[in-house]
Write a protein that binds this DNA or RNA. Structure first.
Lengths: 340, 340
DNA sequence: TACGTTTCCGAAAACCTTTTATTTCTGTTT
DNA sequence: AAACAGAAATAAAAGGTTTTCGGAAACGTA
């Protein structure tokens, strides 16, 4: 068992054991030239034997580069932040970077506090993960390192932001329904003050317009919940009984919609095809029928954001709001018209 | 806009602006005595004006304390790791600690790699978050800093581990069913190679034995999924038609069970009461009826683990496997016998 | 031997902060 | 006026690493 109290081994311990100076030891270990191969070998063996790990603090102090980035999330409890975070962590891990995690829990005070400690730790860059796709205030002005915004874009268009392309995702969904031969397509989604909701509604409108069709009824705005999906099904099936497809703004809404539609005797997908959004697998895979759903590729979004943070740290920033494409995952809840 | 290229401001800049020596500036900013009040004020204003942030690396190098802990997770994509992680982050944030996040994705090689970089960054301690409650190999022997295991305990009983008390949680569930007047209680749970499954089965057995009752049928081991819940419902309602309550090993199983039970004409909770496990709110709250469920208090578990890591860093370790109590959240899926 | 060239190694500075030991200043007492 | 005490300020060291620059050794040539 390693002695918990022992001073960590330093490069001078290694140098002493190898019988060389500190400078030589450093050069040997870092692959610098001007060191005889035999000497280098001796140093490497000494380091090995002492299981020497260079002190990253000392290195960072000297170089001014900590190889550390801060990940500032407003609300990582939200299930959208997590995949983004994982994608970023993945990209960083590959680049030998480490991630300092801070969760502000939606509190601006806490965010400022975390920002201060991240800066005092001299992070090389920051990723800010939003809790929704609504734009958020920029912090880049007060920060001496590059910042990339993921999921929730910065309000300042000169910053670097990556968001899911909700308009495009909705178009995928509706075009798919059209390809299945559906013509009377309705849209049920979340609260109107979510940009995700209005973007998806816009995408639905565009895709229908492309086909020269009108939407079946007005877009129904409500909550993101299963409960609202059930309620919306009652409203819609009464008001627009001849509807043959519904594009739902979330998998939860879709699950609720399917449940109530079936209780009211509509077969899914036979009578009504249903598409969800988010591809939240616990819901989309497990419900019956399994839900066709738009996958916003959040993990890839996080990964991309991290890579662009690298680039920005390197001086190659890519300003603007970048909309990342979604992908449609087709399952049982959609099928050609007339199918079961 | 802050100049991105400018050298960060150091304490000597502050000292120069205030017209004092570096030493005096340091004392003034850190509340040390032997500094005239007026001088201190001048220094503080200078620091303010330059928005000086002490370099945490230099501090850490000097003190040997980085006020940073590593959070090593095998599988943070799992929904159990997340709350633990959040609880820990919360506890650390309060203590002015920062969290370095590393996700090994279940890969031992990657775990070792992350461990090395965490150690070279001189973290003050480590939290290891498991992906299940099955014991995992200890890493404490090779690590010169305190380690606390959360959710998945270390295989070495001398280490410090915090796990949910699944036996106790299951007993809460079954006692509740008994209190509701149920007497023919069955148990459906996940795969037998999960300690979580066998622990919960054990708890169910104990609580029934307390009441002098036998379980209705053998424990049904399967998967943690909704699909298995549906399948198990068919098996159980055929084999033990007079069952009046089911304790399910997860909310997903419970949701599946409820669905199929109702299709087969059993009212829930009228004919059969159902209890889930995990209190995963998206499922337990949204399904109809809302599920009574055992909440393993994971966020609190993470929080506690973090606090004990503090203690261990402070030299006050608390070895052993600590089982953290669960809590029962009663909702509509359980009601006294004969209710609707 | 004197000198130039090449190869290898080591001393010292730099990074930034805190702390210890020392010096300087201020004011009081003899 | 001198001595002293106490308060306030500073110089210097320490922490671990990398890099620059100078020096030493080895070797070949004149």
């Amino acid at each position: 068992m390693t002695d918990r109290r022992s001073r960590p081994v330093t490069i001078s311990d290694v140098a002493a054991l190898a019988g060389v100076s500190i400078a030589t030891a450093s050069k040997a270990l870092n692959g610098r030239d001007r060191v005889r191969a035999e000497t280098r070998q001796r140093v490497i063996e000494a380091a090995e034997r002492l299981s020497f790990r260079p002190n990253a603090l000392a290195k960072g102090l000297l170089s001014g580069q900590t190889r550390t980035v801060g990940l500032l999330t407003s609300d990582s409890v939200g299930r959208f932040g997590i995949p983004v975070l994982l994608g970023a962590e993945d990209a960083f891990g590959a680049g030998e970077m480490a991630v300092l995690l801070c969760d502000a829990r939606g509190d601006a005070i806490r965010e400022i506090h975390h920002l201060r400690t991240l800066l005092s730790r001299r992070v090389d860059g920051l990723i800010v993960v939003g809790e929704s796709t609504n734009p958020r205030p920029s912090i880049s002005r007060n920060v001496p390192v590059p910042v990339v915004y993921a999921y929730g874009p910065s309000g300042d268009p000169d910053d670097v932001s990556f968001v899911p392309d909700d308009v495009g995702g909705a178009m995928l969904a509706v075009r798919h329904l059209l390809a299945m031969g559906r013509r009377r397509i309705a849209h049920v989604t979340g609260p109107m003050d979510y940009k995700a909701a209005t973007d998806r509604a816009e995408g639905a409108r565009l895709a229908l317009a492309e086909a020269g069709l009108a939407q079946a009824g007005e877009t129904l705005y409500g909550a993101w919940s299963q409960r609202w999906g059930r309620h919306a099904a009652e409203l819609l099936l009464t008001a627009e009984p001849e509807v043959d497809a519904v594009f739902c703004g979330s998998d939860q809404i879709a699950a609720g919609f399917v449940e109530t539609a079936r209780e009211r005797g509509r077969r899914v997908p036979g009578d009504v095809a249903v598409v969800g959004y988010d591809n939240w697998e616990v819901l989309s895979v497990e419900t019956r029928p399994a839900l066709t759903s738009v996958d916003p590729n959040l993990e890839r979004l996080g990964h991309t954001a991290a890579q662009h943070l690298f680039a920005a740290i390197d001086g190659r920033a890519t300003p603007g709001v970048h909309a990342m494409p979604c992908r449609l995952v087709v399952r049982d809840s959609t099928a050609p018209s007339g199918g079961s």
